[in-house]
Design a protein around this nucleic acid. Structure first.
Lengths: 221, 221
DNA sequence: ATTAAAATTTAGATTAGCCTAAATTTTAGT
DNA sequence: ACTAAAATTTAGGCTAATCTAAATTTTAAT
């Protein structure tokens, strides 16, 4: 009934919805790398199955039923990511791609065991919150990008975008992980580099990498 | 290219081939619970892709290429089974069904990590040999069923059929696992029960359960 | 207020895997 | 050796998920 394909649609719509409320066809098509026509067809099907509400030409909103499924997929994804890193020792830049596949095939029973082995964690390796089994998720309020923080400030890393393995490897080399404290020593103008201090070591950080790091400011300057 | 469906066909044909050499359409259809016509169509496709040789009306034989894929699927299946039991603590009667799904979605990298975590094991929880990464498998020579051993003999359990969870739970209760020594005290005639001794405790064992336990005879009587 | 551009939907096709029913080929019993 | 039964294949159809191209609707710029 709920195919991996449908799970991907619901997850994608859920994430797009976070900000925009109503989600348009082309946004979904872009995220899933499918044609607009394909997405239109699937939207009609999902509307028929009461997983979302569709107003023709004006986008979609998930129903409670659709949102519940989306959150379960996200829970599986994030628990699997953490499991792959902590238990199997995969590098953190590789877990996203693997979880993207496995999230569709993990039974409730296996997920419970994974959750148990990991000690009921709250966040995944990139700092994203793991929804509970009941579908509750702690939405992150503070999510300013490190790229937008002024020089002289000190921040704590909240989470990082999980998409680009190269960027993730780069961050790992500088010790830029969730919960780590970073001081911004200086910033080049325009799209220039940031100069940051992590622990006792200083690094140069390209702006586009900084843009995929989300932080909370501390009082420290 | 090689879909989960194709993997299932190749694995099934490989297992049927073990005994019979040439495998007929209806045997595959029965194992996979598909119609004969469906299997015929798929056989033609697999022949086109040089995964097997097909002589119309006379069955199929895997090519080296087909066999290699089958063995990789079996390796994934058996390593996943053991992993689910040893690392996640799933009951041994549940791991087969779960592995049947997951075997199609485990990457080489994850499989390597699983193999490593398990300490490069040789057999799965039911006693079946795990093919190596290079596709070598230690075929079990001695595979007489416990149901066919005469009273008074002592045997070592080699492996058990992994299909029926109820039977597996029953065996587990009696301590009937691979490598365990069992003495056959007595046998009721026809399809009657066996009376066995496992360690110091005696049990009654229905013939059909005994039939799914494969053993090697010891010198002991 | 028009109209061109952008977004969306409709129409028509394709592929993988499955089905049933009918036709064909092989096998086995007399 | 013949013929009925069994096994297999062929023919024709279905569904899910995708595509391209054309039609329609909305949006935004003058």
């Amino acid at each position: 009934m709920i195919s991996p394909t449908i799970e991907d649609y619901l997850k994608t719509i859920y994430k797009l919805q976070r900000r925009r409320g109503r989600v348009n066809t082309s946004a979904i098509a872009e995220k899933l790398a499918l044609s607009d026509a394909t997405v239109t067809a699937m939207i009609k099907k999902l509307a028929r199955e009461k997983l979302l509400k569709h107003i023709s030409y004006h986008g979609v909103v998930l129903t409670e039923k659709g949102e519940k499924i989306a959150l379960r997929v996200i829970r599986r994804h994030r628990l699997v990511e953490l499991f792959l890193k902590e238990v199997l020792g995969l590098d953190w830049d590789k877990v996203h791609v693997e979880a993207e596949r496995l999230e569709h095939f993990i039974s409730d029973e296996i997920l419970d065991r994974i959750d148990h082995v990991l000690g009921y964690p709250k966040t995944d390796p990139h700092g994203d919150p793991i929804p509970t089994g009941e579908g509750k998720i702690e939405e992150v309020e503070e999510n300013r990008s490190l790229a937008d923080i002024e020089a002289g400030r000190t921040v704590i890393i909240n989470f990082v975008s999980d998409g680009d393995p190269k960027k993730l490897r780069f961050m790992a080399e500088l010790g830029l992980f969730p919960k780590v404290k970073v001081r911004i020593e200086d910033k080049s103008p325009f799209e220039g580099d940031l100069f940051i201090k992590v622990g006792s070591s200083e690094h140069r950080l390209p702006r586009d990498v900084a843009r995929s790091i989300y932080v909370t400011q501390t009082g420290e300057r």
